[in-house]
């Protein structure tokens, strides 16, 4: 591929590069190791035990993504036409992709739509929050019990980088799959599933069921949170020169999309396993 630049573009690009290098050299000794890495801001509310603490950043970002997705949905419904516009075609592509996935995997027809609702919502929410985790913006850190605002040295804090979100969703998927199973098979048949080969396998089955949400949630959390910390450390080591852009792109967009897909795919798979007779 051959790229042609006009004269003005060449001047702009070379000027940009010179300024970039000058700022990088000027910053060389000023960049410190980011404070409060691996720590999150928490707020106490008058509620018993672990319910009493909240992560305000996660809540704020969840609200932001909530509003974004809701706005997108309302916009979709308002401009709904039979011959789709470009935006509508994009949303339809994503949704029909998820729907076909669900239709292929779920064996019972009456559970296709609820599973589609759950998995598509999971996919959209996680995709949006992961993509937000690939865009540099305002991030919050805590040091010495003071809140500090970091501008553009890290990406927006994504809700999936908080274990609460992932564990909640994974456990929810587990519960939903078992509720669907009870609805489909009846309580007795469902209970028989736990002692299926023989009663000795009961603890193994229960552990297997409990291990599902753990791996399900920690996969996403490890990718987003671990990737975020790794990017922060590598950015510090390279003094925020060129490398963080590539890493933000990789961890935010590529890994984010793949992990959102994996999470919703596994949710569908867990539900379909419970629905098999």
């Amino acid at each position: 591929m051959k790229v042609k630049f006009s004269k003005g573009e060449k001047i702009f690009l070379s000027g940009f590069l010179v300024v970039y290098v000058i700022i990088a050299i000027w910053n060389l000794n000023k960049i410190e190791f980011p404070k409060g890495i691996g720590e999150v801001w928490q707020v106490k509310v008058p509620l018993p035990s672990i319910l009493g603490t909240l992560n305000p950043i996660t809540i704020i970002m969840t609200a932001v993504i909530f509003l974004l997705i809701t706005y997108m949905a309302i916009d979709f419904k308002r401009h709904l036409t039979k011959i789709p516009s470009r935006k509508q075609a994009g949303i339809e592509t994503v949704l029909s992709f998820v729907y076909e996935l669900v239709e292929d995997v779920i064996p019972v027809k009456e559970f296709v739509r609820p599973t589609f609702y759950i998995s598509a919502t999971l996919f959209l929410f996680i995709l949006f929050s992961n993509l937000l985790g690939g865009i540099p913006g305002i991030s919050f850190g805590v040091s010495n019990h003071h809140l500090i605002l970091n501008l553009f040295n890290d990406t927006w804090p994504s809700p999936t980088g908080d274990l609460n979100t992932n564990v909640t969703y994974a456990v929810m998927v587990l519960f939903i799959s078992h509720i669907f199973a009870i609805k489909l098979k009846g309580f007795k048949t469902w209970m028989k599933g736990f002692v299926s080969p023989n009663p000795i396998m009961l603890p193994m089955n229960i552990i297997g069921e409990l291990a599902k949400p753990v791996s399900h949630s920690l996969r996403l959390f490890g990718n987003i949170a671990g990737g975020g910390i790794m990017v922060l450390m590598l950015s510090y080591l390279t003094k925020y020169t060129i490398v963080p852009v590539v890493l933000w792109g990789f961890f935010g967009f590529f890994v984010g999309t793949v992990q959102a897909f994996v999470f919703s795919m596994l949710a569908i798979a867990y539900i379909s396993v419970q629905l098999e007779q």
Partner: peptide, 14 residues
């Protein structure tokens, strides 16, 4: 108030 990044608390309900 601070906490480590692996935590589980009332945020999950929200």
């Amino acid at each position: 108030m601070t906490g480590i990044f692996v935590n589980f608390n009332g945020t999950s309900i929200l």
